[in-house]
Design a protein around this nucleic acid. Sequence first.
RNA 1: GAUCGCUUAGCUCAGCCGGUAGAGCAACUGACUUUUAAUCAGUAGGUCGAGGGUUCGAAUCCCUCAGCGAUCACCA
Length: 495
Amino acid sequence: MSDTAKNITDPIEARYAKLEEAKKRGMNPYAYEFKREHKAGDVQAKYKDLADGAETEDTVVVAGRIVAMRNDGMFIDIEDASGKIQIFCHKASTPAEELEKLDLFDLGDIIGVRGLVRRTPRGELSIRAKEITLLTKALHPLPEKYHGLQDIEQRYRQRYLDLIANEDSRVTLRARSKIISEIRKFIEENWDGVEVETPILHGIMGGASAKPFTTHHNALDNDFYLRVAPELHLKRLIVGGLADCVYEIGRLFRNEGISIKHNPEFTTIELYKTYTDYKDMMRLTEELVQHLAMMLYGTTKIKFGEKEIDVKAPWKRATMIDLVKEKTGVDFLTITDRDAAAAKAKELGVHVEPRWKWGEIVLAVFEDKAEADLIQPIHVIDHPLDVSPLAKTHRDNPILTERFESFINGWEIANAFTELNDPVEQRKRFEAQVAAREAGDDEAQMLDEDFVTALEVGLAPTGGWGMGIDRLVMLLTDSHNIRDVICFPTLKPKK
RNA sequence: GAUCGCUUAGCUCAGCCGGUAGAGCAACUGACUUUUAAUCAGUAGGUCGAGGGUUCGAAUCCCUCAGCGAUCACCA
């Protein structure tokens, strides 16, 4: 060991000392470049059949982070994004000036290695080092090697440490990326989807029932809402004929509680396609989810904790009214009087707000009594009109709409409808929302005059669809907390 | 927002009915050398989340605060 680094037992100080020593020896501890020629995972795959104890003359050049050192650096595990490989440094085959560098290395350092591929007698594929280069000195100690990083708060606040230490986190977040890119591919290949980007700063809150974040633009001296849904802008693009099918994948913001299923900013996809209706959107939902499960696991049967969920299409369909009837014995289609419905709901032990209309009461009973049991995929269809201000009135029943929500594992994962395109009717629905807002419903929507104008210009018959991507990723990766599928979940800033 | 719980070394965790701080990993010094959480011997490392209180004495009991978690409420 060098004099500078000698006898320093503080892990961080020792690393600084080694950093200085490396400089003193003419090395750049933050190298400008390194011509990596091979990834660890590719080497592992290529030499998968190399026999135990076999030596090759094949030279490889790899680079990665030191994640383990054994026998005083004789064995070093390095890891890159593709995998891990062992570096073998032995005085019989590694030049002495290279071996001297081992003194300066710590867990977490990033090094480059040129050497020969071999497999040890014990069966570990290794690189017999000929040349080792320090590429980036790590000044911060790594989490404990066996247990990884367990502290939940630190895992989210310092995700970089979590990713280095915990393979599960890497697997999940990589799966998320794969799922999203596969969704794009599926939508573009099978639905002629054209991806668009609509504003996040909204002057008027609309498109969903939710509490918004507000912000302020200084130059315009105007408050804006962060969008709670992209719906109204996407339909404007359909009106304009930008494409027959537009979709947007992006972040929504809702100023509501945080839980294992809710993050204040979350990602959805919304899609609109002319000359389709809600039945087509059911097909889209089940075919897409089935496709993603097949891509990831080669089967439609996915595991979520102890549960096995089969996402094979087609999925079961049931009306919201029928599901409520099944669970409670009450048929709300025969109780369309608001007060009678409220009385019945209270009888069932469901809390009812005085301002609620028939549809809100039915929805509350559904959420209370039926939702949690919807484990296997199901499309819940024909929502009350009162709770669906942007959906087209059901062709067979004026108090319902052509809408569905898809549930898996008791969670709503998709929401879609035949789009309301009658501007006069839409204005009435908005006015009902405004009245609800004035009556104290702070999640009710606002009247968007320009959107009504767009409908006056004419929206072709159109089906619309939205899906929560975070929850879908949770289901597909057996993740039980939404934070596990978000790189940087919302946390209170630490003081 | 409410209730309950957690916070001890860089990391993972012990620490009982209040008696003055422990282990493993990581670090450091050596030994050993084809290891797989390498092994062996030794060294160093702490304002016990913050502040206040009770007490001769507090990591431990009480209060306040902060962060985090679980459940509930709201919601996707």
